[in-house]
Design a binder for these strands. Structure first.
Lengths: 112, 112
DNA sequence: GCAAATGCATAATATTCTTATGTATCTTTG
DNA sequence: CAAAGATACATAAGAATATTATGCATTTGC
């Protein structure tokens, strides 16, 4: 687990990227996917995720579809066309940011 | 300039790294150095920097020395031994974080 | 049957940054 | 030499975002 401050500000980027790869996902699925892909190094809490997803919906970045699974409810999120652009931009910006930070912090290329 | 959320949480790491390379620096110098090294892509505001520096001092990570330059005052910050460890840890953690994010966001190695 | 996992959500609090403001000195330029 | 911009500190109000706690309900695994 990274210190929480380090991960701050990356949530939206992570969510958008996952949605751009998976057509549609529901909240809980996103938390699990991130845990799995990062080997528990990044864990998204629900208290952070749901407000973010709602904000993305308000901004027209995602649309939602509620699906009943037995008696339970799942809320699927899917990128709008605008959201797809948004996702690419965010990821590109982060890639650029990484380059800048590597230089600034004098971080050498890592093996692996 | 990156979106502000992107840079969130990196301030302490940046400051500690610069201090670990420069023996002692003052606040304004730090803001200028970061601007210069990043080609204006990252700009540290004073409203964010000074509270952070004061917190680092409270935590025993840095010590300060006030120097008079003419009639003006400069406050130099210098890492304590604990602060040096702290700096290394922060930078290593960030390097690790970058690797994780590159994988998660599927970012390819960049040229340059 | 009970604990853990799945699945949504919100509210209080904490943290951190932005923006604005304040004070003062020094340097550059027209 | 006056004014603007740079240097140099600092704090405070407000915004944004995350943490922690809580709540509810269903389903799965032991």
């Amino acid at each position: 687990m990274y210190s929480s401050e380090l991960v701050k500000g990356t949530l939206k980027t992570i969510v958008l990227k996952l949605l751009s790869e998976n057509n549609q996902m529901y909240g809980y699925e996103i938390t699990q996917k991130v845990k799995e892909l990062t080997g528990n190094k990044i864990q998204i809490t629900e208290g952070a995720l749901y407000p973010t997803l709602h904000a993305l919906e308000n901004d027209g970045v995602v649309t939602t579809e509620v699906v009943n699974i037995g008696k339970r409810v799942r809320k699927y999120y899917k990128l709008t066309p605008q959201g797809k652009n948004n996702a690419m931009e965010k990821v590109n910006e982060f890639a650029d940011f990484i380059q800048t930070m590597k230089f600034l912090l004098d971080i050498k290329p890592q093996l692996g």
